[in-house]
């Protein structure tokens, strides 16, 4: 507790007994008094807080009982954080709370809102208690406000971090799902692309395909773009690059599902489709792939050549 050490050194330096009396109410002592007050009036203050929450129309995704249960936990964690000035427990609780309420659609402003409401409810009760002793009220608030603000900050940051973590996780899951490299026959891979392709996804797609070619020792790859929503010059160039990179690994790429409209657009904007081996639909693409692979098997199996 370096803070207290500084305070005591400070009072020694000043030395005067009058100062000593003021200093005897160190911030930590004021906090203790404050915490005792908040514990005594727990039921009342918590009730008032819950009323304020529903008045302000926060946490509408939760039932009254749920709000009350959470409010109780938050209230107790809040008071404990004030008392111990240790925020780890509160931080852990905030993360845990966020984990539970994020899937229910609770928004950042609601979480920040309820913590600020609690801060205000408690501050008002302090006003009421110390209204006759203005100097003391000031000292109490001096002790209360920094701690209360830190608590609000801790909870808000905890919530936002948890939300970001969830978003990142979901993004990754979607990306994994959206680029499946499938092996349908030995040495034949199919990559059905669905949805929107941005540069980041295009890159991931290419890297995944190249790794797939290597691990499966693929000779032929069918890229089906029937499900691609839109094709502009950037996306088309990515596709051309994917085809070229696959060839560098020794694999032939067949592109299927290129609609006449998209083909027309690509020709108009000057994308060189000549480098691409295209077949109308996925079925035809697989058939051609099998011919490419099968042709090889037949010639190699020719006994005369052995």
């Amino acid at each position: 507790m370096s803070k207290r050490e500084i305070t005591s050194r400070d009072s020694e330096a000043r030395g005067g007994p009058a100062v000593e009396i003021v200093r005897s109410e160190a911030p930590s002592e004021l906090l203790r008094e404050l915490v005792a007050h908040l514990r005594q009036n727990r039921t009342l203050l918590r009730e008032e807080w819950v009323v304020r929450i529903s008045e302000t129309r926060l946490l509408t995704a939760m039932t009254k009982e749920e709000i009350f249960a959470e409010a109780t936990s938050v209230y107790d964690s809040y008071v404990e954080a004030l008392e111990t000035e240790a925020f780890e427990a509160l931080q852990a609780y905030a993360r845990n709370l966020s984990e539970r309420i994020i899937p229910r659609g609770v928004e950042t402003h609601e979480v920040v809102g309820i913590v600020l409401l609690l801060r205000d409810v408690l501050a008002r009760s302090l006003f009421a208690k110390y209204q006759t002793d203005f100097k003391k009220l000031n000292r109490i608030l001096d002790a209360y406000e920094p701690a209360a603000n830190r608590i609000a900050n801790t909870v808000a940051v905890g919530f936002v971090q948890e939300r970001e973590r969830v978003i990142r996780q979901q993004q990754e899951a979607i990306r994994e799902l959206s680029t499946p490299v499938l092996q349908v026959r030995e040495r034949l891979l199919i990559l059905p692309i669905i949805g929107v392709i941005d540069p980041q996804r295009a890159r991931q797609l290419t890297e995944q395909l190249l790794r797939g070619i290597r691990t499966n020792r693929a000779k032929v790859v069918v890229i089906d773009i029937t499900g691609v929503a839109a094709m502009d010059v950037t996306v088309a160039n990515h596709l051309v690059q994917t085809v070229e990179a696959s060839r560098l690994l020794g694999a032939t790429v067949i592109v299927t599902g290129l609609s006449p409209e998209i083909a027309q657009t690509l020709v108009t904007i000057g994308v060189d489709l000549g480098k691409m081996n295209t077949v109308g639909d996925l079925q035809g693409g697989i058939e051609q792939a099998e011919r490419l692979l099968g042709y090889k098997v037949v010639t190699l199996a020719e006994p005369r050549q052995a």
Partner: peptide
């Protein structure tokens, strides 16, 4: 033979 996937990606870039 043996062009690595990452190398192929860098090459086409």
């Amino acid at each position: 033979v043996g062009i690595q996937p990452e190398v192929a990606f860098a090459m086409v870039q």
